[in-house]
């Protein structure tokens, strides 16, 4: 059963469909919330909140607007960033270069084409320069505006804008080639 059908069943109150979606995407939601919050307990709470929102708002999901995992992970990102602001924690920079993590991104034979594209995006991010990866991390995973990033890194605002744009242009090029 595909995600759209499962989401429709969840909207009807089907608990089994809900748990199927949990089993399918919990590890991605947890990984994203961990990346944002960097705390297992907070990430667990954010993951729980995300799936409770899926349970209560599944009827709002429109498949023509995007895939279910993107919808779910968008909720997860917002939930985690809200929690980050609530905790008022200053961002810590991740190198994103843990060899163990990188090993997990190598596609195996069961990987779907969509997952394969996500894995290639992981490699694309890894190939960014340290400065580009840093501004991307602070913007997307720490929820900082360009002005806040400039203050955090003590860089000129123009430099932040240029590097952020350059990082995204590089990702777009590599994403488009796949």
């Amino acid at each position: 059963m595909d995600d759209t059908q499962l989401a429709a069943q969840v909207a009807q109150g089907d608990e089994r469909a809900f748990l199927t979606l949990y089993d399918r995407y919990a590890s991605h939601v947890y990984a994203l919330t961990m990346r944002i919050l960097r705390d297992p307990n907070l990430a667990e709470e954010a993951t729980q909140d995300t799936f409770l929102k899926l349970w209560s708002r599944a009827r709002l999901y429109l498949s023509e607007r995007g895939s279910l995992p993107v919808w779910l992970l968008t909720i997860a990102r917002r939930t985690a960033l809200d929690r980050l602001r609530l905790e008022a924690r200053r961002p810590t920079l991740s190198t994103g270069e843990d060899p163990e993590e990188l090993w997990q991104t190598i596609p195996d034979e069961n990987t779907t084409p969509e997952e394969s594209r996500w894995h290639s995006m992981q490699f694309a991010v890894q190939s960014l320069s340290a400065e580009h990866r840093m501004v991307l991390e602070l913007a997307y995973y720490q929820g900082l505006s360009q002005t806040e990033i400039a203050e955090t890194l003590n860089w000129p605002l123009g430099t932040v804008k240029t590097r952020l744009r350059a990082a995204m242009e590089q990702l777009r090029r590599e994403w488009g080639e796949k």
Binding site: A26, S27, Y30, A31, P40, Q48, P69, L102, V125
Partner: peptide, 17 residues
């Protein structure tokens, strides 16, 4: 949107389910 899925999957604790 693809950046949402960049982080390698991490299995949450079983207690969460």
């Amino acid at each position: 949107e693809s950046l949402l899925m960049v982080s390698p999957a991490k299995t949450p604790p079983a207690a969460l389910r």
